[in-house]
């Protein structure tokens, strides 16, 4: 559900394992990496690449994958309480898509010589991050609409440029994800559009959801990284490498410009008294974002950080017997097959 780099992993010494000896990741002729970037061509898994490029991608793709699967929880919370069979089927399909997006991304990360099980271990130990947005609770049914409209809307804004990311497997995964994500945003808007034309209580519920999700959605693009702030983060290097195509601020601005008229259509009020149209620039200008809140949630102090991680670990542990049974079945089956093959020979 998104592709912002949330900064370095928390624990030192947990970097990706080096590539296996039979996978010569840095084996191609020297200089080809810069040459490919210069011509806006894609880097593929076994091409020569700087270690910093590889580790940046591993971190970003892993964070992105973790965000997808943790992102199943806030909405999954409402599957059993969806107000109609139609809405329930839609929500199940959406949550299943998020699982799929996580798997595409873990596969893309594995082409860089890391192991999915290791990445999951790091998520479970809390040493690798996921998007802060999923540490907010989904209090009402309208939150399901707000997530689709705003959170998936922001995610699409982030992910569309990633379809042209310099690393081939990541870009290809993003193309699949973006194709599937547009239904997510539309179903969210439709849900709110329905509520906004319903009773006063339903409209009030939609407004309350917008009030709570608007600012966290703006934070999804990450801290400012243009002007003076550009020197602080990863943005300049990621742009030079063709991993990132636009700054956090540019993408956030596009999102605001896209979303304000949509809120008007819904008849909802943006929770920002400073929001104003600037006729000169042709953009909507928003008020200051509380980056203190962003850092607190990123650092573990959001409403649901502990709950999300505990749920994830429990799901993984509860599923262990299924994975073990599948392996046992495969082993038994393989024995049978080789015996049959043996007797036929």
């Amino acid at each position: 559900m998104y592709g912002t780099d949330f900064g370095p992993d928390d624990a030192a010494g947990t970097g990706p394992r080096p590539p296996a000896p039979d996978e010569p990741l840095n084996a191609a002729d020297a200089g080809i990496f810069d040459d490919l970037l210069e011509h806006d061509l894609r880097i593929e898994p076994r091409d020569e690449m700087p270690e910093a490029y590889r580790s940046t991608l591993v971190r970003q793709i892993a964070q992105h994958a973790h965000s997808e699967i943790i992102g199943m929880q806030p909405e999954g919370n409402w599957i059993t309480r969806a107000p109609s069979l139609r809405r329930k089927a839609i929500l199940i399909a959406k949550v299943q898509d998020e699982a799929g997006h996580g798997l595409y991304l873990y596969s893309a990360a594995e082409t860089l010589g890391v192991d999915r099980a290791d990445l999951l271990d790091r998520l479970h130990r809390g040493t690798q991050k996921y998007s802060t947005i999923f540490n907010y609770p989904t209090l009402t049914w309208a939150d399901v609409g707000a997530i689709g409209w705003l959170v998936d809307g922001a995610a699409i804004m982030n992910q569309v440029p990633l379809c042209r990311c310099s690393y081939g497997p990541y870009a290809r995964a993003m193309i699949r994800v973006c194709k599937e994500e547009s239904f997510h945003q539309r179903q969210g808007f439709e849900l709110l559009w329905t509520m906004c034309r319903g009773t006063d209580a339903q409209k009030a519920m939609a407004q309350d959801a917008l009030d709570r999700w608007w600012w966290p959605a703006l934070m999804m693009f990450g801290p400012p990284d243009t002007g003076e702030a550009a020197t602080g983060g990863h943005t300049a290097q990621s742009m030079a490498w063709g991993i990132k195509r636009f700054s956090n601020d540019d993408l956030r601005q596009r999102f605001v410009d896209m979303t304000v008229p949509q809120a008007e259509k819904l008849g909802l009020r943006m929770p920002d008294p400073d929001l104003a149209w600037n006729a000169e620039s042709g953009h909507w200008e928003h008020g200051p974002i509380d980056w203190g809140e962003f850092r607190r949630v990123l650092g573990g102090d959001g409403a649901c950080n502990a709950q999300r991680l505990a749920h994830r670990v429990r799901a993984h542990e509860d599923g262990a017997w299924v994975r073990e049974a599948a392996v046992a079945y495969a082993a038994k089956h393989a024995d049978g097959r080789s015996r049959r093959r043996g007797s036929a020979a």
Partner: peptide, 23 residues
Amino acid sequence: AGSLHAPDAEMALRNARDLYTRR
């Protein structure tokens, strides 16, 4: 289309159906 982990070919096929041909 991509890759996935599975214990055997049959499970790989079923998982691939769910992962790569949902639409």
